[in-house]
């Protein structure tokens, strides 16, 4: 079984970091992962996109893909290409604070006021962590505790002072979303988590 997750937003929202965190969590839970990131030259405001593929077997997907099981849209500015790849029955997670019009996706949609919740949790920069927390709650793609436990690993040491803010954002997103689907329902149980 393979799950594709495309993320899109703008520089500064933490797209690359959150993707790496989910990839690390999936690996810690016994799965295989591959992700490819691309971003504009600007530190803030340019596009920031990632392709993440998780699977029970070694991932043979090329680094970029044409169709996805899910999409996380944190900002509408560069989202058109990502939305075009979302399968009709795919899951869309949208940052409703900024994405007021994401078009008519026929599949499931999780609207989460991620910027608002991140600000309330202490850091507007942790917006993608809110979305990741919500995505994890809606899909059980990875356990919240696994994600939180890996923050010290994916954040460089000089950023460790931001761990509490990122943990608070993950928890806020996780509380805000209801279970919707089980991402791995049709797959075997993963190996015992290493974290």
């Amino acid at each position: 079984m393979q799950r594709e997750i495309l993320w899109t937003g703008i520089g500064g929202q933490g797209i690359q970091l959150a993707t790496e965190l989910l990839a690390a969590a999936a690996v810690a839970e016994g799965r295989h992962a591959m992700f490819f990131g691309s971003y504009g030259g600007m530190m803030r405001g340019g596009n920031s996109d990632t392709t993440l593929v998780l699977g029970d077997a070694p991932v043979q997907s090329p680094p970029t893909i044409g169709a996805t099981w899910s999409a996380l849209v944190l900002h509408p500015a560069h989202a058109a290409g990502t939305l075009a790849k979302l399968r009709p029955d795919g899951l869309l997670v949208a940052n409703s604070t900024l994405c007021t019009d994401i078009g008519g996706h026929p599949g499931a949609v999780v609207r989460i006021p991620a910027t608002e919740l991140a600000t309330a949790a202490g850091s507007a920069n942790a917006v993608t962590m809110v979305a990741l927390g919500a995505f994890a709650a809606a899909t059980r793609i990875a356990a919240l505790d696994t994600l939180i436990g890996l923050l010290p690993e994916v954040l460089p040491a000089y950023r460790h002072r931001h761990i509490p803010a990122n943990e608070a954002a993950l928890r806020a997103g996780h509380r805000a979303a209801a279970p919707l689907v089980d991402a791995w329902a049709a797959s075997g149980a993963p190996e015992e988590a290493a974290v």
């Binding site: 790496e20 990839a23 690390a24 690996v27 016994g30 799965r31 295989h32 992962a33 992700f35 029970d56 077997a57 070694p58 190996e191 290493a194």
Partner: peptide, 12 residues
């Protein structure tokens, strides 16, 4: 040759 499951030694 790759294992079907990521071993616990696997890292991203």
């Amino acid at each position: 040759t790759r294992p079907d499951r990521a071993s616990h030694a696997a890292r991203i």
